[in-house]
């Protein structure tokens, strides 16, 4: 399981922080294991979760969560989880002849220079809806992943607007948390590319987990390294500071192990 990551981030399902904007990014590595970690973590902590799964099908997330000991299907039936499966609705929107007049959550797939307003309204609606009193903890929004928006032709500025709205709504208004994944690109690209977006989001976030491949190249026993940046609002005169830690990691079947640099069990 992910107990090591719990202690690195100093969180536990009983003691779940609020008002955090967590940014996950990767470069030459795959950070999707962190998405699965946060999804299962917040479900275990009893939070109300809105998950925008754009890259994979529901069954994929469900199968992985099953291994991590959380059932997505049950959480969905109980109303704890609102799951938007991007791939499911995509085809109908992509191939429809006439654009429907009412704004939809996936309308961005259709027209080129659109914004993500429909999607934001979906997030708003699903996290605001209160079924059976205050059964669930603080609301959480998880997005996997933002790069898909760019691939589908949404402008970087529109994505940044969307994240800003979400942060204002979830973190400030509802005292909840936001987790977003963005996949980096190796080369600096055009204006409003993925790197540009990453910079803009790093500026906003309270906790950044940056996953990278090893700078020395591919290794079978160490899958990469993870940098943890935390913005600490210290009471000292110096004002806000950032803490930075670096770990190497290896992903297992049911979790990941983290260790200080150079202390992999394969090396020692």
């Amino acid at each position: 399981m992910f107990s090591e990551l719990d202690s690195i981030l100093d969180i536990s399902p009983e003691n779940c922080p609020q008002r955090e904007f967590i940014l996950l990014s990767d470069r030459k590595a795959d950070a999707s294991f962190l998405i699965h970690y946060f999804l299962s973590f917040y479900l275990r902590a009893g939070c109300k979760v809105c998950f925008l799964g754009l890259v994979q099908s529901f069954s994929h997330y469900s199968a992985v969560s099953q291994r991590l000991g959380v059932s997505l299907t049950q959480a969905r039936e109980k109303g704890q989880l609102v799951f938007l499966e991007g791939l499911k609705g995509a085809l109908a929107v992509l191939l429809e002849e006439e654009p429907s007049p009412s704004p939809q959550k996936l309308a961005f797939l259709r027209s080129p220079h659109t914004n993500l307003r429909g999607l934001y309204e979906f997030v708003q609606g699903s996290l605001m809806a209160k079924g059976e009193g205050d059964k669930w903890g603080p609301p959480v929004l998880i997005v996997d992943d933002l790069t898909v928006f760019l691939s589908l032709g949404v402008r970087g500025g529109a994505v940044l607007d969307f994240t800003h709205y979400c942060r204002a709504f979830v973190c400030s208004k509802l005292q909840g948390n936001v987790v977003m994944l963005i996949r980096g690109e190796e080369e600096e690209s055009d204006e409003e590319g993925s790197e540009w977006l990453l910079k803009g989001l790093t500026h906003q976030c309270s906790l950044a987990l940056r996953v990278e491949g090893l700078p020395t190249g591919y290794c079978r026993d160490i899958h990469g390294q993870m940098e943890v940046f935390r913005r600490v609002n210290g009471s000292c005169v110096g004002g806000p500071k950032t803490q930075k830690n670096l770990f190497q990691y290896k992903v297992h079947d049911k979790g990941a192990s983290f260790f200080a640099r150079g202390t992999s069990s394969a090396v020692l």
């Binding site: 791939l87 499911k88 995509a90 085809l91 992509l94 191939l95 797939l109 080129p112 898909v148 760019l150 691939s151 589908l152 032709g153």
Partner: peptide, 14 residues
Amino acid sequence: AAGLTTFLYGLRAL
């Protein structure tokens, strides 16, 4: 720029 990637997204959905 997004033509091929949009197509691939639709293909993945299929």
